[in-house]
Amino acid sequence: MAALPRRIIKETQRLMQEPVPGISAIPDESNARYFHVIVTGPEDSPFEGGLFKLELFLPEDYPMSAPKVRFITKIYHPNIDRLGRICLDILKDKWSPALQIRTVLLSIQALLSAPNPDDPLANDVAELWKVNESEAIRNAKEWTRRYAMDT
């Protein structure tokens, strides 16, 4: 494997030295391109109080290609499907090499605060979010309690 690009080293250093509040991203011991991520559920959202595990992988041509990110913890959200895949424009066609791991994770946290049922990935969740928002929020809280709060 080729040497780790300076860009990845710099980003990792900064993530460790000045971590983003509510987000932790730690590189895997055996693979510096693979990060173990934990995002705390934002305040005033149905995910409040939950700790959500994600995995983040920097592909060979990062930062020219977007990192691959996936939720490991089950989550009830219209833009995240059962496999944890995330529908977020900056992870796809709106990716820019100027974006960083930090900005990506902040965008994911923002997505938890502001679900977008008009651009759904999980169809049944999005449908309920549109027709009966209060029930959808109840479900999201229930899932957060059941899967994202380790006792």
């Binding site: 041509d61 020219m64 290609s65 709106k94 820019s96 090499p97 100027a98 974006l99 900005t103």
Partner: peptide, 18 residues
């Protein structure tokens, strides 16, 4: 190089965000 390998040509834009 990355963009062309993805089949993008006339649509290649600046690297800055947005």
């Amino acid at each position: 190089e990355v963009q062309i390998n993805q089949g993008i040509s006339t649509g290649i834009s600046c690297m800055a965000r947005d």
